[in-house]
Write a protein that binds this DNA or RNA. Structure first.
Lengths: 260, 260
DNA sequence: TTTACATATTATCATAGTTTAGTCTAACTC
DNA sequence: GAGTTAGACTAAACTATGATAATATGTAAA
């Protein structure tokens, strides 16, 4: 396996890392391994966490807003959404959970879900007893720190989502989201060139970005005509990352892995 | 001190608790004490955490986006905002941190702030060594669980903020935010009748709700004319909570203290 | 009290985005 | 191979909200 230098922080900062995620590891090991050197024991523990897996079909809700939430989920393969459904039938997608992401990391004695989570593609998801999360904070300080980092990162992602919804125009929102997903997919090594998984429909995008389907379509068309992105079924290619970056004011630092 | 029954979950659910926050305790003790019976030792530890205090003047940034974040802050008195400033000069307020709220709970080895935090009023803020947070998870399981609950709650608050920005109209957003703040102030016992602290300017509100100042003003005027709210300098009175609730689809369960 | 500044209020006009109501295509089912 | 469905795309009419600018009010400082 060749070693490769990867510019992980995007175009603006020139931070370079030499950690290459090996794809035979599970996504969460690749993710945490990208920010800290993990021992064999730590990696084995993480893999062991994911013994109890669940196959969730595309379109299925596996966490439901208001229901008791007693388990922690680790996404192993596939994309999921976290969303809130309003009584009016309108939907707001809060964020996407990608491979290596954790849902319900902070379940406690008697917690109820404050969102619904659904599989956007067929997914492989690990079901974890939250007591094992507590075990981590007792026995594995590095991993505990990694989980803390994951939490802070989730907050950053949600914060960026608020910026998109509150202070960016329609096309900027799309560009900004694409750059977020690019940063996140890079971290887990699931990006080839500038080709990115893109399993969501335009209706999903609309519900993510607070727009109508029609308007998402218009802006997507415009981005394509201006050769900034290329769409293929289930994939998007970022032809012009600089243009996306400039138009959206995306802050790469918010999701930079190595914060030096 | 008389014991009083308080309906804490809002209008829809009839959940009743008999825990009355005693105002001689610090806000975070009132907050965690409202969800779990704390021992004297636990309360003392929490109070001890807050020995190192900081007085922050209204308008001052005490956490800056991009700067190293090595400490945890507990808001003791006053209101603060977390916001992101775009290169264009536009600002998005992500959330308000009220007394008893924690900022930087998930700082780790080398983390940088992904938002700026500013005092909205003069504030008293405790500066806490993050190692003491780790100490909590080792020694005080109830408190650790309480912090986990705080984290989940912060996610719920941010999720609701995304719903406001993405899927509600201008007036709905205002109503929704008011109900959120009401729920949160109730928890720490800082609400009298339906009078609520309201230290933010209309410009702050605009930057919170993704609207222009003028439009915030228009909608605020309309709510006042329809006798749904009353404004006084630094305070708002919710004249018609049911109307606010119905128009905004606010989900009280997301911030309900006791999740039975 | 006067001044100054920040905040709130009102009006007018421009526009980004929504709504509705379609068409078209590819994929799936019977 | 016809019927069905989900998703992508288009057009026109409409509306909520933004931008700008001018006035008014409140609050703190002198």
């Amino acid at each position: 396996m060749e070693e490769r230098k990867v510019n992980i922080a995007g175009t603006r900062s020139g931070i370079v890392a030499d950690l290459q995620p090996s794809m035979d590891r599970s996504a969460i090991v690749r993710k945490l391994g990208a920010i800290a050197l993990l021992s064999q024991e730590e990696m084995d523990f993480l893999e062991g966490l994911q013994n109890n897996t669940l196959l969730v079909e595309r379109g299925t809700d596996f966490i439901v807003d208001g229901d008791d939430l007693k388990t922690t989920f680790i996404i192993m393969e596939g994309w999921t959404t976290r969303y809130i459904m309003l009584p009016s039938g309108r939907r707001q997608i809060l964020s996407y959970a990608l491979p290596g992401d954790i849902l319900g990391l902070h379940v406690n004695f008697r917690s109820k879900a404050t969102y619904t989570a659904a599989a956007l593609t067929d997914c492989k998801i690990a079901v974890v007893d939250p007591r094992r999360i507590i075990e981590i904070s007792q026995k594995f300080p590095i991993l505990a720190s990694g989980l803390s980092w994951c939490t802070a990162r989730e907050f950053a992602i949600l914060g960026d989502q608020a910026v998109r919804l509150g202070r960016l125009g329609a096309q900027q929102r799309i560009a900004h989201l694409l750059l977020e997903l690019r940063s996140r997919m890079r971290l887990i090594g699931e990006i080839e060139g500038e080709w990115l998984d893109f399993p969501m429909t335009q209706a999903d995008l609309a519900d993510t970005l607070g727009l109508s389907i029609v308007h998402v379509n218009r802006q997507l068309m415009d981005l394509r005509q201006r050769k900034i992105i290329t769409l293929k079924k289930d994939y998007v290619h970022l032809d012009d990352v600089d243009a996306l970056s400039e138009m959206s004011h995306f802050d790469f630092e918010h999701l930079a892995e190595f914060q030096i």
